[in-house]
Each structure stands twice: as structure tokens, then as C-alpha cells.
Amino acid sequence: MELHNLGFDHWFERQLPTSLQKGCGVARVCAVDRGIYRVRNGSGEIPAELAGRLAYTLKSPDELPCAGDWVIVSYYNDDAAALIQQVLPRKSFLRRRSPGDSRAIQMIAANIDTAFLVQSCHFDFNPNRLDRYLAMAADGGVTPVVVLTKTDLIDREDLEQKIALVAAMTTAEVIALSTVTGTGWEALGPHLVAGQTACLLGSSGVGKTTLINRLVGRKAFETRAVSGTGEGTHTTTRRQLVVCSQGALVIDTPGMRELGLADAGEGIEAGFEDIAALAARCRYADCSHGGEPGCAVAAALQNGELAAQRYANYCKLKKESAYYALSSLDKRKKDKAFGRLVKAVKKRKDR
């Protein structure tokens, strides 16, 4: 398989150094699992590990190779294994704050053309989480497509209501499909172009594994039943890139319920297109939507054009992103100040 079939285009060619050292080549990271890598080149897929020099010079975890990255590797063991020497710049990416650590960034995938934001119409339909996925895609310059699965488990009226709700949140295309009836699958075709890369994002149990098995044209991954409470089971434990039957590339990801946003200010604005459009009509360019005269956002909230819950989600994500953007020193100062406030309140209560 040629590199261009794996997504290597002129943009990436321009990121290469003037010349490569003897024994080195370009490959794409196709699997990451707890620090263990697999890369794919024109000859096939081989195991890889970080070169010591690269591991020593990395400044933060988000600089580590992730699924979809293009890397320069040096081969050994008769080209049966490789050392990752350099990670090429990323054209686009999907990232989140590392679970349990508000200061670290976790890369989900890189060099993605389309993000399929998968939500089940049964238990897992969650507009609040979808807001975060949309902001995440906008933050990394990835085109989102909302995919509603398991449409056979609800009636037509309920499905139309869910589609209308999503359409009110975003201008992204909405695809409703069912693996049981086969409806909706043809709508995925235009987004699965040979040499382009898509990524599946969604919680466990929404049908990502079933979806990717059908796209690949074989049972590449095991599926498991969803519990009676709607909780999914993690069937995908690593991020990996696979080639579909029509030549498109798809990165599958483990189910994610914790989606802390990194510094995604512009991504949030793009993810909340309706609120951004309203804000553009405010009397003052620096309107905080907190009571200023001529505020279009406040007017939309009052007349019902903008749902209060959606605006609350917007404010929450803006605040979360702004906090993450603070320097580590400012964060420590803010945390200490909050700690002093809590202690002061407790002292007053004890008197």
C-alpha cells in the first residue's frame, strides 16, 4: 500500500526534513496501547517503540505519538521493527484533559478529516456530552458528523425529536442508522473517501464496534451486549487505525464518558454556533451577556429562542476552558485562594 493511500499528502510532505538518514522512513501510527506502538508503512504493519533521544526531549504527554500521527522511524531487525525518531506536525487533532488530572492533555487521535460523534438513541443519548464532542472537534479543526445509532429501538416520532434537537445544536450533518434494519448506511459513504481518515467518538455501548466492523467488512473487533441500565462495556481498549473495504481509514477509540476540555476557547465558539451568532448581534463587541443593554443572548434566553440548559452548557465549558488556560502558577494561586476562602467560611460557622 502506498503512503498516499494511508493519508500522506502534500501537506505532510512539506513537513519532512530536507533528507532522511539512511535506514529511516515515514510511517503512520496505527495503534497505541499503554506506551506500545504499531506503525504502518508501504510494506505493512510492524511494532515500534520510542527512540531514547525522542523520549528524553519530549516536554509533555501530548507530544507523544498518538493514533493517526505521521512519524519518522528507523528500522532494525531486517525492517521487522522500528524506533520512532520524530513526530511530524499535526494537521488536525482530537484531545481532552487527562482523566483525573486537570493540567495534562491526552491526545486521542491526530490528522483526522472527519469525526463521527456516535450517540445511541436508546440509553446513551446525551446532548450535554454531544456539546463537548462538538467543541472538541472544532478545537482540533476536525469536521464533525453526528451519528445516531440503534434507531430501531425507538419509534419514528422519538427519532425525529432527537434529530431536531441535534439540528438545533449544530449545523453538522446528522446521520440516523440501524445495524438491524440497515437504514442510514448509505449516508456514511460521502465521508469515507479513500485516503481520508475518520475517527469514532462515543461512550461504551453506543455501537462503535459494530459500526467499524461493518465499515471494515469483517469482524475486526468483538462486541458485547449492553447492560439493562444502558451502561456499555469497554470492548475497545486501545486507539487504532484500520483500513475500510473502500480504502478509507478509520480510528476506533475506547468509550469515553469523561471529556474535560483543554484550552479550547475558539473550539467552544465554533461548537456553539447558535450562541456565537447571537453574540455577534449584541450591542457591545465585548458583551459578557451578564445584563448589558442590547444583549442579544439575554433577549434570546428571555423569548425562548435559546434554551437555558444549552446556554448553561456553553458557560460551563467556557469557564472550564478558561481555567485550563491559566498558567500552572496562576492555577496554584487560584486553588490556594479558594482553599483560604473555604477555611474562612468554616471558621465563621464554628464561631
Rank of each mutant, 00 (worst) to 15 (best):
L6A: 11
H10A: 15
W11Q: 10
F12P: 04
Q21T: 09
C24G: 04
G25T: 03
V26Y: 05
A31N: 13
D33Q: 15
R34N: 12
R38N: 11
V39F: 07
V39Y: 05
R40H: 11
R40T: 14
G42L: 06
S43C: 09
E45V: 15
E45K: 10
I46G: 13
P47V: 11
E49L: 12
E49W: 08
L50H: 11
S60K: 11
S60Q: 10
P61A: 06
E63N: 05
V71K: 11
I72T: 06
I72F: 08
V73L: 10
V73T: 14
V73P: 09
S74T: 14
Y76V: 09
D78H: 14
D79C: 09
V87D: 08
V87K: 09
R90W: 06
K91V: 04
K91C: 05
K91F: 07
R96V: 07
R97W: 05
P99L: 10
G100C: 14
S102L: 12
I105Q: 07
I105N: 03
M107D: 00
V118T: 05
S120V: 01
D124R: 08
D124I: 01
P127H: 06
P127L: 05
P127Y: 06
R129G: 10
L130M: 07
D131L: 01
G140H: 02
V142E: 01
T143L: 07
V147T: 01
K150L: 00
T151L: 05
E157F: 12
D158S: 14
L159T: 08
A164W: 13
A164F: 11
V166N: 06
M169D: 03
T170V: 07
A172G: 02
V174D: 04
A176L: 10
L177F: 06
V180W: 10
T181W: 00
G184E: 06
A187R: 15
A187W: 04
A187G: 02
H191T: 05
L192M: 13
Q196G: 01
L201H: 09
S203W: 03
G207I: 00
G207N: 01
T209Q: 00
L211I: 04
R214L: 14
R218W: 10
A220C: 07
A225H: 05
A225F: 00
S227Y: 12
G228N: 01
T229I: 04
E231K: 15
T233A: 03
T235S: 01
T235A: 00
V242M: 04
V242H: 03
V243W: 02
Q246A: 10
T253K: 03
G260M: 09
G265H: 12
E266M: 09
G267F: 14
G271A: 03
D274A: 08
I275C: 05
R283E: 10
R283T: 10
S288C: 08
S288N: 07
S288W: 09
E292V: 06
G294S: 09
L301M: 03
Q302Y: 04
G304L: 03
G304Q: 04
G304A: 02
E305S: 12
E305F: 01
E305H: 04
A308G: 03
R310I: 01
A312W: 02
Y314F: 14
K316C: 13
L317H: 04
Y323R: 15
Y324K: 15
A325C: 07
A325I: 02
L326I: 12
D330E: 15
K333Q: 15
K334G: 08
F338S: 11
G339A: 15
L341F: 08
K346I: 07
K346Y: 06
R348C: 02
K349V: 08
